[in-house]
Design a binder for these strands. Structure first.
Length: 485
RNA sequence: GGCCCUAUCGUCUAGUGGCCUAGGACGCCGCCCUCUCAAGGCGGAAACACGGGUUCGAGUCCCGUUAGGGCUGCCA
């Protein structure tokens, strides 16, 4: 393709950005940017009944979160404003253009005002008619009815018996008979333009070269191709990607849990994990690569490699990608990403460095950012009796005959250490000496300590725990238990 | 109902007539490591929906069946 690709993502702001839409946006972005083209965001808000500003804001922030920056489209900084040579990018603001194209179709007699009632558009079998019985009504008659104040929709006079074909970027040649299309409506009786017409006007005006969308749009494609031709334009290249379904192969819905991307953001999913995961539903690079960054995806993406069957949203896999990306974060990055997910006071408790050290200790153990808080709280607060796991307290402390000795002897030895000596090397000497003299296994020694220090039997490695908590905290917590045993 | 689409392990997929006794990943199971939990390492179970063709040869091409899905709006 000699000309630069111009690809658009055109969501209708009637809900949140769901995972299917996010993936469509991603594929469009990858296709455009991989070819050095432009990624355009256009708001399909022709249905004023259902479009909301709130929804548009959610979609914009969802795309931004994923890192899918658009070259032209709504100004993310100012709602309603647009950036780009074909502004505005809100369809509802492009009425003059739509009127202009409508005028052309009218002048060339390619559309007609349809006076058919609902009954007249219904066949004897009760099924909707595709072609209007008034499609050949004279212009004089149309104008007369208009003059009489009759409210009529404008329909496209669809040619009969022609095959509409296109080379679909993902499914190859597709052919649909115009007899399956019919005289579809362009303008409602109240004068409001409809989707199929507006899309074509805007795609022409914005010089869109490639359209990649969900396969639920396949039946719209012949309508749009017919309209492009009626307007004397070569249609863009179309591609239709399969839908994303739930693990039960049903269309994604609330039943399947979170469907909005911002819900995953709140869940502590990293955008790079989400992007990677989404990219591999319905597409694969062809080699065995699985973990790919947005940049890598850009260069590898090829719509002809898209799958033709629906892919299921497997949250276990998303979780896996999230673990992968969390693990490779630097200490600083990890801390910044975690900031919205833990109490602000944690950073003041003993300072940023302390918080960072704690987070790194658990970095490899969490699947979602939201899990950090529940895994590290005891680094920021002494575990109270009620914070502690009752069963483990009973097993390793209160119901353990060796507990007093294990805690006491090691405590006394540790107490002789200065803050400077409080490091893994010296601590190891103490613990190992006790292990040897007592004849108890390391597990029998370390578990009571772990429960005393954290309230539970699960924690980072013993020395990491003791060193990070520090001398004062460790001794204080153990002394508390010594009093009770 | 009509029109259209799809069909490889539970899931995401590789596979474009011989390289396939079907590869990778998630999940699952086992073992190793080990102070707990993870991580990591090693290994394992697990699929070409079914039936006909075409061909020397079919997961790969064709037809049918079955099963899913989409569309069928004066929504997008």
């Amino acid at each position: 393709m000699p000309d630069k690709l111009r690809v658009r993502f055109a969501p209708s702001p009637s809900g949140y950005l769901h995972t299917g839409g996010a993936r469509t946006a991603l594929f469009n972005y990858l296709w455009a940017k991989g070819q050095g083209g432009s990624f355009i965001l256009r708001v399909e808000d022709t249905d004023e009944e259902r479009s909301t500003e709130e929804s548009m804001r959610a979609i914009i922030s969802g795309l931004q979160w994923l890192g899918l920056d658009w070259d032209e489209g709504p100004d993310p900084g100012e709602f309603g404003a647009s950036i780009g040579p074909h502004a505005p990018y809100y369809q509802s603001m492009r009425r003059p253009l739509h009127q202009q194209y409508m005028q052309r179709l009218w002048d060339e007699d390619k559309v007609f005002y349809c006076p058919a009632t609902a009954e007249e558009m219904t066949g004897s079998d009760g099924i909707k008619l595709l072609f209007s019985p008034y499609r050949d009504i004279s212009r004089e008659e149309q104008q007369k009815r208009l003059a009489d104040g009759q409210v009529m929709p404008v329909r496209f006079r669809c040619p009969r018996d022609v095959d509409v074909r296109w080379e679909d970027a993902v499914r190859g040649e597709v052919k649909i008979s115009s007899n399956e299309v019919g005289d579809f409506v362009l303008f409602k009786g109240n004068g409001a333009p409809l989707y199929n017409f507006v899309v074509v006007c805007d795609d022409i005006d914005m010089q869109i070269t490639n359209v990649l969308r969900g396969e639920d749009h396949i039946s719209n494609t012949p309508k749009q191709i017919l309209l492009h031709r009626a307007l004397g334009q070569e249609p863009p290249m179309f591609g239709h990607v399969p839908l994303i379904v739930g693990m039960d192969r049903q269309r994604l819905s609330k039943r399947h849990g979170a469907t909005a991307v911002d819900a995953y953001e709140e869940m502590g999913v990293l955008p790079e994990a989400m992007v990677n995961f989404l990219a591999l539903i319905g597409w694969a690079p062809g080699d065995d690569r699985e973990k790919m960054t947005l940049a890598e995806l850009k260069t590898a993406f090829d719509p002809t490699r898209c799958t033709k069957s629906a892919g299921a949203f497997n949250q276990d896999k998303l979780k896996h990608y999230n673990e992968l990306y969390i693990r490779e974060l630097s200490a600083d990055e990890l801390t910044e990403r975690l900031r919205p997910f833990v109490p602000p006071i944690w950073f003041e408790h003993r300072g940023e460095d302390y918080a960072r050290r704690v987070f790194v200790l658990q970095q490899e153990k969490i699947s979602y950012l939201t899990e950090m808080e529940q895994n590290t709280w005891y680094f920021f607060r002494d575990p109270l009796e009620e914070d502690s796991n009752e069963k483990n307290v009973a097993k390793f402390l209160t119901g353990n005959a060796d507990a007093k000795k294990v805690l006491g002897e090691i405590h006394d030895a540790m107490e002789s250490l200065s803050d400077e000596q409080w490091a893994e090397e010296r601590l190891t000497l103490i613990v190992e000496a006790f292990v040897e003299s007592s004849g108890l296994g390391r597990g029998k020694v370390m578990q009571p300590w772990r429960v005393a220090l954290t309230g539970d039997s699960i924690s980072p490695g013993f020395y990491d725990l003791v060193v990070t908590l520090g001398r004062d905290t460790v001794l204080r917590r153990v002394e508390e238990w010594l009093k009770k045993l």
